[in-house]
Structures are given as structure tokens and as C-alpha cells.
């Protein structure tokens, strides 16, 4: 077993190494230069690029970069001396806020989504069910930047209830902690629309399927009360696959959404990632990319290891002996391997 885990961790290093390599090559091939001052003539630009070693053979640049990375130094911005160490000064500085906003949005999305999805499934074909279906589809149908524009127009400009955008509390400029907290409301709402809609739809479908399965029939046959059937058997089992879609969703939410960040002035990673990429700030882009990949690969690893721990036995054992956690792990595993189908867009 230890050997398996060890192999997998080794594999992660290989994967991350390959990810860096491929990203590096792609960014190297991308046209443009980090020195985008229109005042510079091409020959002046070249001289400055020379100074930063950007015109060296690709292998030399790559070797130099990998050597730095091996010492856990991801480099900083090239054209300006804004960031010396992008990982330390930037990602660590910015992550808590986006994680907080994304986390709250995720919790809201999960609670509302599961509640209404379940209610809709229990009261199938009622007005509640129909409106949940319609709202769910609308939620995934309206682009988030339109939603953000509407929120801003209505709640900040017309009604003047909420601040226009997020501002950090700063007595020097005159923003209180209250402003800061109020400023998070709109981005949280805008962010939670997609989780609410997709979790709601997913919950409803799963619960409907559970209701039609044999063990629910058995439970009913045993004479259990309706609430007991719903809460003890149906919802519990329907929740497992629902939780599996929350995993990838959480990565997306923590990483933040480009549109929401732009509209509400949130110092997050997505917006900077796009800016850095367009500015051909290779090291900064690579560092943020690396961080994304690291989260992604780690989640897969954790799932795989947990699965690997149980694997030899569950193949033999029948599903019913698995227990909640076993089922959860199994379905997470299935989720990652199979349909990321809906491919919900979070941009």
C-alpha cells in the first residue's frame, strides 16, 4: 500500500514537471514581449530582452528557470519590479480573499441548491418543482457578466443599497470594515448563481432516481414513515453524487472568476492570470498556472489514494457493504474519470 502511495506521489512530481515544461514552451512560443513600451524601437527592445536573457536559446532559458524552480523560487514580473517572488508576495497575499468569497458562495450554493433541489424532487410536478427547473435553467443560461452588470446597476447605482464594488477597509481613504463586508455581498451573490443552479438540478435528478430504486421501496414496505424514508435513506444516498460535483466546483470558486473580479474590483488570481498572460509575463503566468495545476492534481491524488486504500476490498465487496464514505470515494473517483459532462463554465 505504501508503495502505491509513494508511486503516486512520485507520479505527481513527474506530472507537475511536465505541466511546467509544456506551459513554459507554450509561453515561449507565444508572440510578443513583456516589454510593451511603444516608445522602444525593436532594436532597443531586443537589447533589454538580452539583459534579461529572453533571447537566449530556449533550452538555456528553460534550464535556468527549472533550476530556480527547484529552489522553490518561481521568479517575479519581468518588465516591472512589482513582484520579486510571485508565489510569496502574490498568491499567498491574494488567495485568502478569493477563498473567502468563493467559500461563502459555495456554502450558499450548496445549502440553497440541496434544499430546493430536494424539495422539488419530493414534490414532483408541483409549482415548486417547475419553478426550480426553470430557475435552474435560467441560472446556467445567463452569462455571469450580464448578471454582474444587472446587480451593479440595480443595487449600487439605482437603489444605492450596496457599495459599487469591493474595497478593503482602509481608514486612510475612508472605508470602514462595514464597507468592506457590504462590498462582498454582490460578488458572492453573482458567484453563487451557478452553484445554486447546478446543484439544484443535480440534486433533483439524483433524488428522483433514488426514489425509484428498490431499497426505497423496501423501506416503504417495511412501513417506515415518509420523513424517515426521505431523510434516512433517500437524501443520504442522493447526496453522495452531489458532493462529488462540489469538489471541482470548489477549485473553480477558490480560483475565482475573471468576470466577477473585473466587475467588483476583487484582487483575485483569475484577472491577473489573464493580464499576466496577455503581457507575456512568463514567470508570473507560470507561477499562477502551477498553483492551479497543483490544486487540481492534488485533489485527484487524494481521491486516488483514498480509493487505492479501499480498492482491493471494494472490488470484491458488494456496494451495500461500503458505507457512506466508501460510496462517496467511489463516486468521486467515477466522477473524475467519467463525465465532466456538463462542463459548467465558470467564466
Amino acid at each position: 500500500m505504501l508503495r502505491y502511495v509513494w508511486n503516486r506521489i512520485l507520479m505527481i512530481f513527474v506530472t507537475l514537471f511536465l505541466i511546467l515544461t509544456i506551459n513554459f514552451l507554450l509561453l515561449y512560443l507565444m508572440p510578443g514581449s513583456p516589454f510593451q513600451n511603444p516608445r522602444l524601437t525593436p532594436s532597443q527592445r531586443e537589447r533589454i530582452e538580452d539583459k534579461y536573457g529572453l533571447n537566449d536559446p530556449v533550452l538555456v532559458q528553460y534550464g535556468r528557470y527549472m533550476y530556480k524552480v527547484s529552489k522553490l523560487d518561481f521568479g517575479g514580473t519581468i518588465a516591472t519590479n512589482t513582484y520579486d517572488d510571485i508565489f510569496e508576495e502574490y498568491i499567498i497575499d491574494r488567495l485568502p480573499l478569493t477563498a473567502k468569497i468563493g467559500g461563502i458562495a459555495l456554502i450558499i450554493g450548496t445549502v440553497i441548491g440541496i434544499t430546493f433541489g430536494a424539495l422539488a424532487a419530493i414534490r414532483r410536478n408541483s409549482w415548486l418543482d417547475n419553478s426550480v427547473t426553470v430557475l435552474g435553467v435560467i441560472g446556467v443560461s445567463i452569462p455571469s457578466f450580464v448578471f454582474a452588470a444587472i446587480l451593479q446597476e440595480v443595487f449600487a447605482i439605482n437603489l444605492d443599497w450596496l457599495p459599487l464594488f469591493y474595497r478593503e477597509a482602509n481608514p486612510d481613504i475612508g472605508h470602514s470594515l462595514k464597507d468592506q463586508n457590504l462590498g462582498m455581498i454582490m460578488p458572492i451573490i453573482a458567484l453563487s448563481v451557478l452553484p445554486i443552479a447546478s446543484i439544484m438540478r443535480y440534486m433533483r435528478t439524483e433524488l428522483v432516481e433514488v426514489f425509484s430504486s428498490d431499497y426505497i421501496l423496501l423501506a416503504q414496505a417495511k412501513g417506515l414513515s415518509k420523513p424517515a424514508v426521505i431523510f434516512k435513506h433517500a437524501i443520504r444516498n442522493a447526496l453522495i453524487p452531489v458532493i462529488t460535483i462540489i469538489g471541482p466546483m470548489a477549485i473553480n470558486l477558490i480560483a475565482g472568476s475573471l468576470v466577477i473580479e473585473r466587475f467588483f474590483n476583487i484582487p483575485g488570481l483569475s484577472n491577473s492570470l489573464v493580464t499576466f498572460t496577455l503581457a507575456k509575463e512568463t514567470y508570473a503566468t507560470l507561477a499562477i498556472n502551477f498553483f492551479y495545476s497543483f490544486m487540481y492534481v492534488t485533489v485527484i491524488l487524494i481521491v486516488d489514494i483514498l480509493y487505492g486504500v479501499i480498492d482491493p476490498r471494494i472490488r470484491l465487496a458488494s456496494n451495500s457493504k461500503l458505507g457512506l464514505i466508501g460510496k462517496l470515494i467511489k463516486s468521486i473517483k467515477r466522477k473524475f474519470q467519467s463525465d465532466n459532462a456538463g462542463g459548467e463554465v465558470n467564466e
Binding site: I19, Y292, V297
Partner: peptide
Amino acid sequence: IEIYGSIPSIVLLIL
């Protein structure tokens, strides 16, 4: 696929 999928799609699109 794992490597390819772990590059944020917006970056991939820009590239």
C-alpha cells in the same frame, strides 16, 4: 489529459 486539463482553460485559449 491530466496535464492538459490542469492548464486553466482561459490561459489555454489565450495561448
